[in-house]
């Protein structure tokens, strides 16, 4: 159980870190000053969540690792984040679509975790849940503005949605580790969240005048270390100093 739980918690940490790192790349590139504040603030939430999940993973592993071990000393293939989150930023609308599609799922996941019977994980999730609820208000409002804004923004958003869509299948796929953890902690399986996710996303897309893409879903990949080519560069940049000066502390 500890092994499965550690994998489960590391996956949560990897999702938060990889998305947080992509958002960090957007600093100084936002369309308005208010969006600079929002993006940096949300990225900070994700880095904070990654730290909490990794600290817990380190406790579970009991091998004397710290949070930075998981972020800085593993190769890209050891990361278990969703493929969607490692995709390059693209334009502002691409980043909003990625954020929105993931966070609708992530909020449901956190709601479950906040009520689960692992106290440590429940505490972390309760804190993260508040943050993500707030992020979603932001990404939802931009989905509407850009989807139902100008002809140009509408087309850009429809295209962004089609690009991102293929990666959403991964949210609803469970493996043995998931099933073990979900059973022990009293959580819904990821596939059980799919109909609620569909409901929320369909409703928003319709309000935003966007069409739900018919693109097929990639069922799995990132969670088992089968990443896109993009993650290697993200990890190389992230880990540059720790890898170049392995004896140093910072």
């Amino acid at each position: 159980m500890t092994d499965s739980l550690s994998i489960y918690v590391q996956r949560l940490g990897d999702n938060a870190l990889v998305l947080g790192q992509r958002m960090v790349e957007l600093v100084t590139r936002e369309p308005e000053l208010e969006e600079e504040l929002a993006n940096a603030n949300f990225a900070l939430d994700y880095i904070g969540q990654a730290r909490m999940f990794y600290q817990y993973a380190a406790e579970l592993d009991g091998e004397g690792n710290d949070e930075d071990f998981y972020a800085y000393r593993r190769d890209a293939q050891a990361f278990m984040n969703y493929l969607l989150l490692e995709q390059p930023n693209g334009h502002f609308g691409d980043a909003i679509v990625r954020q929105y599609l993931f966070e609708v799922f992530y909020l449901m996941q956190l709601e479950g975790l906040a009520a689960c019977n692992d106290q440590r994980l429940a505490e972390i999730a309760a804190r993260a849940e508040k943050e993500i609820r707030y992020h979603l208000r932001h990404s939802r409002s931009w989905m509407l503005r850009l989807g139902d804004g100008t002809e140009e923004s509408h087309q850009k958003m429809q295209r962004a949605l089609e690009q991102a869509w293929r990666y959403c299948g991964e949210f609803f796929y469970s493996d043995a580790a998931d099933r073990g953890v979900c059973k022990t902690l009293g959580l819904d399986l990821p596939e059980d969240l799919q109909s609620r996710w569909n409901e929320e996303v369909n409703e928003l897309l319709s309000e935003a005048t966007l069409e739900r893409p018919g693109t097929p879903w990639i069922r799995e990949g990132g969670r088992h270390g089968k990443h896109s080519e993009h993650l290697g560069y993200l990890v190389a940049e992230l880990q540059h100093l720790q890898r170049s000066y392995p004896d140093a502390s910072w």
């Binding site: 600093v27 600079e36 940096a40 880095i47 904070g48 730290r51 910072w250």
Partner: peptide, 30 residues
């Protein structure tokens, strides 16, 4: 002024340093 510091955000050498630097750059936007 966010730019020169932003240049090291992706490469900050620990998660704690990354979080502190990000908070600082956000303060500057504020």
């Amino acid at each position: 002024g966010m730019q020169p510091e932003g240049n090291w955000l992706t490469r900050a050498p620990s998660l704690q340093r990354k979080a502190i630097l990000l908070a600082k750059v956000q303060d500057e936007a504020g």
